[in-house]
Deep mutational scan, measured.
Amino acid sequence: MTSCHIAEEHIQKVAIFGGTHGNELTGVFLVKHWLENGAEIQRTGLEVKPFITNPRAVKKCTRYIDCDLNRIFDLENLGKKMSEDLPYEVRRAQEINHLFGPKDSEDSYDIIFDLHNTTSNMGCTLILEDSRNNFLIQMFHYIKTSLAPLPCYVYLIEHPSLKYATTRSIAKYPVGIEVGPQPQGVLRADILDQMRKMIKHALDFIHHFNEGKEFPPCAIEVYKIIEKVDYPRDENGEIAAIIHPNLQDQDWKPLHPGDPMFLTLDGKTIPLGGDCTVYPVFVNEAAYYEKKEAFAKTTKLTLNAKSIRCCLH
Results as ranks from 00 to 15, higher is better:
E9V: 10
Q248F: 02
I191H: 04
I6A: 14
H313D: 11
I127K: 15
Y279D: 01
Y164A: 14
Q182P: 01
Q42N: 11
R92S: 13
R168S: 10
T62F: 15
A287Y: 10
K80F: 12
Q248R: 02
T118E: 02
T302F: 10
E47H: 09
I157Y: 12
F209T: 03
T269W: 05
D110N: 06
A165P: 13
Y289I: 10
T299S: 10
C218F: 00
P216N: 05
W34N: 00
R132D: 10
P151V: 05
Y164M: 07
F17V: 11
F17E: 00
Y173L: 13
T2R: 14
F215R: 00
I143K: 01
I239K: 05
L263E: 14
D266H: 15
E221C: 04
K228C: 11
P50H: 02
D275S: 10
T167P: 14
S120D: 01
T299K: 10
T277V: 15
D249H: 03
T167C: 13
K144I: 11
V14A: 07
H207S: 09
H141A: 06
H33W: 12
N236L: 15
V90R: 11
E227M: 04
P55E: 13
H116G: 15
K172E: 04
Q184H: 14
A7S: 07
R309Y: 06
L265D: 04
Q250S: 14
Q184T: 13
R43G: 04
L247R: 03
E36D: 15
A202G: 11
K300H: 05
F295K: 00
V48G: 02
E95D: 15
A93V: 15
I191Y: 03
G237F: 04
E227R: 04
T299D: 13
L192V: 14
K13E: 03
P183L: 00
M198R: 02
H201F: 10
S169A: 08
T118H: 04
Q248K: 03
L247Y: 03
R56E: 10
I111P: 01
V175L: 03
P55R: 15
F100E: 06
R43T: 04
T145I: 13
T62Y: 09
R56S: 08
Y164K: 15
Y155Q: 07
T119C: 10
E290L: 10
V14K: 00
C61G: 14
S120G: 04
H201I: 05
